[in-house]
Simulated scan of single mutants.
Amino acid sequence: MATLSLPVEDFVGNLAQHLPAGKVSEVMRILQGADLYLACACATGEPSALRAFEQHVLRHIPARLGRLPPNMLEEVLQVLRERLLVASGNTPPRIASDRGRGPLLSWVGIVAARISGGGW
């Protein structure tokens, strides 16, 4: 994965927000640290994180969506980028809500499937 320039303090602060009280050791065993770090960096708009997200996550989404017409696939990917990576008012980008408890690609794939099916 690409080298990202997200300050450690920002990542640790993000991580602390997602650790439920009393279940820290349980969550740490299943945490997808690299994916959570990427999601956190994307939420800050860090350019190298956004490039890594495109390369390591978004490029795999078409295969997960099955056979869609090319124009619909591009539309789904664009809506996906907007919904996950762009803040709305005082609300941070939705990718900031990733808790790192499963692969980022799986979560993004589910969101993409909902978009292509008309949901979310």
Rank of each mutant, 00 (worst) to 15 (best):
A87N: 03
T3W: 08
A39L: 05
H18P: 02
R64L: 11
G45N: 09
L85W: 05
H60N: 15
G118Q: 06
P93Q: 05
L4E: 01
I61K: 08
L15F: 06
R81V: 00
G118M: 05
I30N: 10
L4H: 07
S97I: 04
S97M: 07
R114M: 01
R51F: 01
V8H: 11
A2R: 09
T3G: 14
E46T: 09
V27K: 11
G100W: 01
P103V: 10
R51D: 06
R59Y: 04
A21Y: 12
T44A: 13
I115V: 09
S97A: 15
L80H: 05
W107Q: 13
L50M: 12
R94E: 07
V108R: 04
A39I: 10
H56S: 12
S116A: 09
I110P: 00
L68P: 07
L73I: 09
V86K: 12
Q78H: 11
P92L: 11
V57H: 02
G109S: 06
E74Q: 08
A52W: 01
I95R: 05
V24Q: 08
L68Y: 09
I30C: 11
R101E: 15
L4A: 04
V76T: 10
N90G: 12
L80A: 03
Y37W: 12
S116K: 10
R64Y: 02
R101N: 15
R94N: 15
L50N: 06
L65E: 03
R101K: 13
R51P: 00
G100Q: 02
L104D: 00
V111P: 01
Q17M: 12
F53C: 01
P93Y: 03
L31N: 03
S116W: 01
I95V: 13
S88Q: 14
A113C: 09
R29I: 02
L6M: 14
R94T: 09
R67K: 08
L104R: 07
P69F: 02
G45Q: 06
A96E: 04
L104K: 13
T91P: 00
N90I: 10
A63I: 05
G33F: 11
A2K: 12
D98R: 09
E75N: 14
E9V: 13
R94S: 09
Y37G: 02
P92I: 11
E26C: 03
G100D: 01
L73G: 02
H18A: 11
E82D: 09
A43G: 12
M72W: 13
E75D: 14
A21C: 13
E74F: 07
F53H: 02
F11W: 14
R101F: 06
S5I: 14
G66Y: 12
W107P: 00
R83E: 06
P20N: 05
L19Q: 03
L15H: 06
L68V: 08
V8A: 12
I61T: 10
R67I: 09
